[in-house]
Structure formats: C-alpha cells, structure tokens
Amino acid sequence: MTTVYSIDARIEVPVRDTEVTARVADAVENLFPNAEFEHEPGTLVAETHTLDPFSDQLHEQEILDTARREFAKGTTEDGFSFSLKKQAAFQGVINFSVGEPDELGDIEVTVTVREPTVEEYIDHIAPPTEDGRPVDPNGNRRR
C-alpha cells in the first residue's frame, strides 16, 4: 500500500533593501525547487506541496538527525516549522538556523500536514537513523 502525503509548506523570507528579490528567490528555489512565489512588501512568500527535493538534500548532506531534532522543536498538532540560513541556501546547502536570526533574516518554513500524521510525514522526509543510516519503521536500513 502506498502512502499519500498531503502537505502545504509556506516559506517566508525577508527581503532587505540591500538584496535583490530574484536572488532571494533563487536561494529558496535551491532548496525548494517546486515553490510558487508571491511578493509581499519586504517579504518573499512561497508555497509548495512537497518536501521531497528537500528530503533528498537532507539525505545527501547526511543531516537527518539534525533535521529531525529541528522539526521536533517546532512540532504542533497540525504540522511543524523550522528556520534555515539564507546565506547557506544561496549555495544550495541546508543549514538550520539556531539562536539569533541572521542580519538579513532567515528562511522560515511552516508545514501543515493533512495526510498522514505529522510524525509519519517527518519520518518520510527525515527517517530515523541507526549508525547514521536511515531505517524504516520495521528496522530495515534504506537508501
């Protein structure tokens, strides 16, 4: 049986006067290539309905445990949220923002999960690991 994932991810990024909006959009697209953009005064807002490319990057960078920790910090009944460093995103690298936001602001991501549960979706995009390798819920290594 295939699980159907139904999510909405809202991505908000401040655009400072010293920044070019298109470059900020490029940073977001580096991590969320399916994002659709809207421009609001001083803010770039994007929405996507899949985090699969972001998940692929988490696997490539081998930062699944870090991602799970950050997702857990921002978990609510309806979803989860997290912040990313804008400067790293310009380079196509995921770097979670902890502590004080950067001078130029962080990329704020809010994920609303409709199907399945929040925990199951987090396990899908950032599976638990054993010895640094992803494992599925049955304890088998994957990827």
Rank of each mutant, 00 (worst) to 15 (best):
M1N: 13
V4C: 08
Y5W: 11
D8N: 08
R10V: 14
I11S: 01
I11K: 06
V13A: 13
P14R: 06
V15A: 12
V15I: 15
D17T: 11
T18C: 07
E19G: 06
V20W: 08
R23M: 14
R23D: 15
R23P: 00
V24G: 14
A25M: 15
V28L: 10
L31S: 03
L31I: 15
P33K: 06
E40A: 15
G42S: 10
A46V: 13
L51V: 03
P53Q: 01
P53D: 09
P53N: 05
D56G: 11
E60T: 10
Q61K: 09
E62M: 09
E62P: 00
I63T: 08
L64T: 09
L64Y: 06
D65C: 06
R68I: 09
R68P: 04
G74Y: 03
E77D: 15
G79K: 06
F80P: 03
S83N: 12
L84K: 05
K86T: 08
K86D: 09
A88P: 00
F90S: 04
Q91C: 00
Q91S: 12
I94R: 03
F96W: 07
S97T: 05
S97K: 08
D102S: 15
V113S: 03
E115I: 04
P116Y: 10
V118Q: 07
H124I: 03
I125E: 01
I125W: 03
A126C: 05
P128G: 10
G132A: 12
V135P: 01
D136C: 08
P137R: 15
R141Q: 11
R142A: 06
